[in-house]
């Protein structure tokens, strides 16, 4: 068994004879996270099935439904989906043991794990900021008597903020994970153990991205 002092020398993470325990654990945990989101999807479809008018009227029967910022949300969704691409390019760089860029910052082909992950971090931050902006729009619209919503204005508002909010918390958690990974990458050599960490963070990021595609289609696209 490896002890603390052999962390830098550990080869088990890069081993090709058996899967890394860290990635197996991450996948099992992510599959349980999927059931967490299953509960939120189930709430959404249950509320939807018992309400004949959808989206639900903002202020009781007969009033207009909530006005969703579909175009704006579509734009930040594209940013999030593209951040999955940059994340994967970072993983490819990590697997080729390229931690830093080898040329100018404008030569994208020379980018290493660090550059790709910082770009992913920025794109993820754009997504969360966009979502916060969208929330403020809905809340102020509601308080000004327009077609907005708050978490307590209706069952629709509750599940909207619960589902998208829990997802935004996951994205924020991913951003924190990127920061912690950067801190670890700045210490010592680029060991196989750090490559594994980068790979499992990318698993999490792709998972959050796929869940958002599901949530976005459910809430914004399927009428």
């Amino acid at each position: 068994m490896a002890t603390a002092t052999t962390l830098g020398k550990s080869h088990a993470h890069g081993s090709f004879t058996r899967p890394s325990l860290v990635s197996v654990g991450t996948i099992v945990w992510l599959s349980s996270e999927l059931m967490f989101f299953a509960a939120l999807f189930a709430i959404y479809f249950t509320i939807r099935s018992v309400n004949p008018v959808w989206p639900m009227p903002v202020r009781g029967p007969g009033t207009p439904p909530v006005k969703l910022e579909t175009a704006f949300d579509g734009a930040i969704t594209i940013v999030l989906v593209l951040s999955s691409v940059t994340c994967q390019l970072g993983v490819f760089a990590a697997e080729e043991r390229r931690l830093r860029r080898s040329g100018s910052i404008f030569r994208v082909s020379s980018w290493g794990l660090r550059e790709w992950y910082i770009l992913t971090l920025i794109m993820g931050a754009i997504f969360v900021s966009g979502q916060c902006y969208e929330y403020t729009r809905y809340v102020t619209d509601y308080h000004e008597g327009l077609n907005g919503m708050t978490i307590s204005s209706s069952a629709y508002g509750s599940i909207f903020y619960l589902a998208t909010g829990f997802h935004a918390m996951h994205v924020t958690g991913g951003l924190i994970a990127f920061v912690f990974l950067m801190l670890r990458l700045s210490k010592g050599r680029f060991t196989p153990e750090k490559v594994t960490s980068a790979v499992v963070v990318s698993y999490y990021w792709h998972f959050v991205d796929v869940v958002w595609i599901g949530l976005f289609s459910t809430i914004f696209l399927i009428k």
């Binding site: 990635s23 197996v24 996948i27 099992v28 992510l30 599959s31 349980s32 999927l34 059931m35 989101f37 299953a38 509960a39 999807f41 189930a42 479809f45 249950t46 939807r48 099935s49």
Partner: peptide, 20 residues
């Protein structure tokens, strides 16, 4: 709809691990 959604994502749970 509740149980159907939960079962549909259970498919995802098993498939994610199997695919990996």
């Amino acid at each position: 709809p509740t149980g159907t959604t939960a079962l549909a994502l259970t498919v995802g749970l098993a498939f994610l691990v199997g695919f990996f």
